[in-house]
């Protein structure tokens, strides 16, 4: 497969073994991959650990769009960005982690913007649950819900 590969193409292999053939210009939007290519420590196939095929496909789609549309109007790109990150709601966390580890600045910025829009105007309680999880929630239960529940029990 690699023999038939065009010169300016790279193969990215996801954590679950799926391979994607990507133009080099698109792949190097990830600073991490760019460094590997520049240091010439990359063979034709670049492993992308921690990122599964599903997420990698999304990241590649995002990068491709950004590469193609460099000349396009900035507003179009913005619309694409917001739609892209919205569609990725389910995979938000994985996308952020992937964008962070692979150092894809444009994607990371779009995702952070999305999270900011999401949490704007939300209550502190909501943020705690979303970012910190139930360790803190446990404290809250002991203080609030547990009391309410107790009250109800003794009625």
């Amino acid at each position: 497969m690699s023999s038939s590969l065009e010169k300016n193409m790279l193969i990215l292999r996801s954590s679950d073994g799926e391979e994607f053939i990507v133009p080099e210009v698109v792949a190097v939007m990830s600073k991490a991959i760019k460094n590997m290519v520049e240091d010439e420590c990359a063979s034709n196939t670049i492993p992308v650990p921690n990122v599964d095929a599903n997420i990698l496909a999304m990241v590649i789609e995002f990068c491709k769009k950004h590469d193609e549309s460099e000349a396009e109007a900035a507003s179009d790109l913005k619309t694409f960005d917001s739609e892209f990150v919205n569609r990725g709601q389910e995979a938000l966390y994985d996308l952020i982690t992937a964008a962070n580890f692979r150092d894809v600045k444009e994607l990371l910025d779009a995702l952070c913007q999305n999270v900011a829009e999401m949490i704007k105007g939300k209550s502190v309680h909501h943020i705690r649950i979303q970012f910190l999880g139930y360790q803190l929630f446990e404290i809250l239960t002991s203080n609030f819900i547990w009391n309410i529940w107790c009250d109800r029990d003794f009625d």
Binding site: L92, N100, C112, I129, Q130, G133, Y134
Partner: peptide
Amino acid sequence: IRAKLEPNLPNLPEEIILNILSR
């Protein structure tokens, strides 16, 4: 309650939280 309220953005690195906060 726990099952419903699992965090969907746990343990984000500080630089990401800062990136979000700055917006």
